[in-house]
């Protein structure tokens, strides 16, 4: 595998072989497509409900005709949702971008060390890091929110998004470290590093000169992954922020559980809040899949 290969390449379908197909194989193939189409329709059904409702007018919305396409198409719901959620979308963007960049940097450093430049006890520390990504965050939430509130007493600006950035960086370290470690372990030949070391490179210069230049694919995967999980997080947002300084997931939840539900607005809000991750998914789908799978498959 070449140094820059990503796991996504393994998803490429095998070359189609042209063999005489029997009746049974033909029947299986037809059944296969029928099933695939059925499952796709089922999976898309909630998306359909979202879309048709978001284009209705609030005045027209009636639960009994919820599944039908709008009698009058309108962007009223979208405008209302955008007006409500826009500030939170901005905050979420800032949060997810900063958090994913910083934790990717830390992950790259750690991954390099754990894969190629170990120290005594590094293996144990790596496993301890890994456990950090499985913990239920409830188990740290009470001390965490206590500490954040204490910090905010002295530094009032450290509320809302800065708090969340810190949390997503810290709790993103394990997964980022894992992705980079696996990437470096398989894609960076140890010989290259050894050679540079013989030439007198330090740990740091071997990293910047040899490792970093071939890291972009892993960075893409990690950034997408971290961006998505920071963007989609709700638990930290709920415990550590409020509606006026929280991310879009908080805003969406508040919108949806408001006292006078405006369904077109709520459904449009769901789409607004999901748009960035959906766009990433559509445009960079291959990397997204790679991000999901990195490390899990040999």
């Amino acid at each position: 595998m070449s140094a820059a290969t990503l796991e996504a390449d393994r998803l490429a379908s095998p070359p189609v072989r042209h063999r005489a197909s029997t009746k049974g194989q033909k029947a299986w193939r037809s059944l296969k497509y029928v099933l695939l189409i059925c499952f796709s329709v089922i999976v898309l059904m909630p998306a359909y409900a979202l879309l048709v409702t978001s284009f209705k007018r609030q005045a027209d919305y009636d639960q009994s005709t919820a599944w039908q396409i709008p009698a009058h198409w309108s962007v009223e719901g979208w405008v209302a949702a955008w007006n409500t959620l826009a500030p939170a979308v901005g905050r979420s963007l800032v949060m997810a971008v900063i958090a994913s960049c910083v934790s990717a940097m830390l992950g790259s450093l750690n991954g390099y060390i754990f894969a190629k430049s170990r120290f005594p006890g590094s293996h144990v520390i790596f496993v301890l890091f890994l456990f950090g990504m499985f913990i239920p965050y409830q188990a740290i939430m009470i001390p965490l929110s206590g500490m954040m509130l204490n910090i905010q007493d002295g530094a009032p600006w450290f509320s809302g998004i800065p708090t969340l950035i810190l949390c997503h960086i810290v709790y993103g370290i394990p997964i980022c470290t894992l992705i980079f470690r696996n990437y470096y372990a398989t894609s960076v030949p140890t010989e290259i590093i050894e050679a540079s070391r013989v030439d007198g490179a330090t740990t740091w210069s071997a990293y910047t000169r040899v490792v970093l230049p071939i890291s972009p694919p892993a960075f893409v995967v990690t950034l997408i992954w971290q961006f998505t999980s920071a963007w989609n997080d709700f638990l930290f947002a709920l415990f550590l922020t409020n509606q006026s300084n929280g991310p879009v997931t908080f805003g969406l939840n508040a919108l949806a559980s408001g006292q006078n539900p405006n369904y077109p607005q709520i459904m449009a809000g769901v789409l607004v809040a999901s748009l960035p991750t959906l766009i990433i998914y559509i445009v960079l789908g291959k990397y997204f899949v790679a991000g999901l799978m990195s490390g899990s498959v040999k």
Binding site: P46, F234, G269, V270, A273, S274
Partner: peptide, 13 residues
């Protein structure tokens, strides 16, 4: 595609 959507957004639907 449902993977790209947050639990909160999916929960609303």
């Amino acid at each position: 595609f449902p993977m790209a959507i947050s639990f909160v957004a999916a929960g609303v639907v």
